[in-house]
Write a protein that binds this DNA or RNA. Sequence first.
DNA 1: CTTGCATCCTAACATTCATCAACTCGGACA
DNA 2: TGTCCGAGTTGATGAATGTTAGGATGCAAG
Lengths: 270, 270
Amino acid sequence: MVAPSIITRSFRSPSIDPETIATQDSGDSRIARHIDAFLARQPHHALSKNGAEKLASLLRDERAVEDRETLSHRGETLTQAVLLLEGFAFRTIKRDEQRAIVGISVPGDFLDLHGFLLGRIDHDVVAAGAGRVACIDHDQFNSLLDESPDLARVLWRSSLLDAAVHRSWIQTLEKHDAPRRIAHIFCELQARLEMTGRANPHAVRTPFTQFDLADMCGVSAVHANRAVGKLREMELADIRRGTFYPGDWEAIRNYARFDPDYLFAVSRTN
Amino acid sequence: MVAPSIITRSFRSPSIDPETIATQDSGDSRIARHIDAFLARQPHHALSKNGAEKLASLLRDERAVEDRETLSHRGETLTQAVLLLEGFAFRTIKRDEQRAIVGISVPGDFLDLHGFLLGRIDHDVVAAGAGRVACIDHDQFNSLLDESPDLARVLWRSSLLDAAVHRSWIQTLEKHDAPRRIAHIFCELQARLEMTGRANPHAVRTPFTQFDLADMCGVSAVHANRAVGKLREMELADIRRGTFYPGDWEAIRNYARFDPDYLFAVSRTN
DNA sequence: CTTGCATCCTAACATTCATCAACTCGGACA
DNA sequence: TGTCCGAGTTGATGAATGTTAGGATGCAAG
């Protein structure tokens, strides 16, 4: 490795404390703020202030979740939708003793919204690291949707964003090697965190082990380690215990062929 | 290869002519039948007869499309949604002179429904083989959705099915090698065609070249060829000029680890 | 401070797949 | 009938990745 001390210094000692995370505050009440992260990815005025408050008022059973806790089980009949307030979660499919990770959720994501219309989900949702969630009963969704077409559109749209992220994963799996896939995952996470004001330009803090990264990329843990090592050697980024310390974001995005177009981010300048 | 003549005979001379494809007929008018394939994947009574007729009445500009015709362009502002009536289509993402195929559409699929709420789409939709399409203006969707929450649910649900298929692709790309991926693709196609009564148990006829299969699996065309050869050697299936001639479907599904659970097929026995 | 355990890291060898090159096959068409 | 061209096929070589094994590291519990 070339000049490890320099890399380490520049990557691991950001001038801004990684814990100091800017949080957007456009909500009125505490409960409303919980739905803000979700609404932050929708176009302005997609949902009236009244509609947003109604949606927020449906949130129930806010609670802390533990690392690796299964929040929603494959096949199980669902009666409520779970919203991730803090932390991360995986969508995983287990098969033949193997675990595939087919998606990552960030705060503001509904974890099993598709279970509302499909009745059950086709995969498990597992908490990654400690976090917080809240729930909305499907019954409440049903009655609210009938009187508020706007809400239906907002929730539908959020499902479409999930699908767009899935397509990006498919493309990356089909065309890029492991180091690029890992870089792409962190580019995507950073962009999604930015959309809700949770990003820190100097570090992407996650609870992901190299085993987790391997199962996101469809490679062995040994090879995920090699891929992490290559990103380090190339001085693009350092990844240590789940935290991604970027060198030059522009260089990383270019290397990973990351184009945030598919995230349909809405401008929040006004 | 073992006993090629026997394989060839059993695979290539099905007792039922591959062109004889059963088509379900539960619609009243010709135009209504066009929406049947779409509705066939929704639960019974998800949409009232009245609602289904309204939706069908919105279909405009039915037309034939040519092989490789781009039906919907990435980034372009969309004003209508395209429904595939006959034939196949790809979702493709081009990048660095490379083409990734991230999804396949069958008759009854909306090709760019996500463009309705997102305004544009994140990939190109290209016809595979000759086919037929019809369109619905976004404006018409908007007015109909406000008065019919059921329709919104049905369309939203179809978006969720797309996402479930995407997740299955991600899992297959992450965990299975090329021969299994190819087998899985045809298992999925067969299952989706069955859902609209378009399947033939003796052949899955598609216009896909081995180049297309390669771009669906994220492998080179040469390797796709070897994967096809392996399926042939294993006497699981023969693939010739896009047509998949299955040996024993049960053995194929087992080999590909195909579990149709994620397609959320509805029973159509009643 | 010691121990235990999960994680990270490395080495060696096997397999899968990419790449390049050449050749075959079969249908379209003049 | 002959030519052409896209598609399919095969072989050789190297890169990417899997598998197995083992060692290093670092936090946490006692």
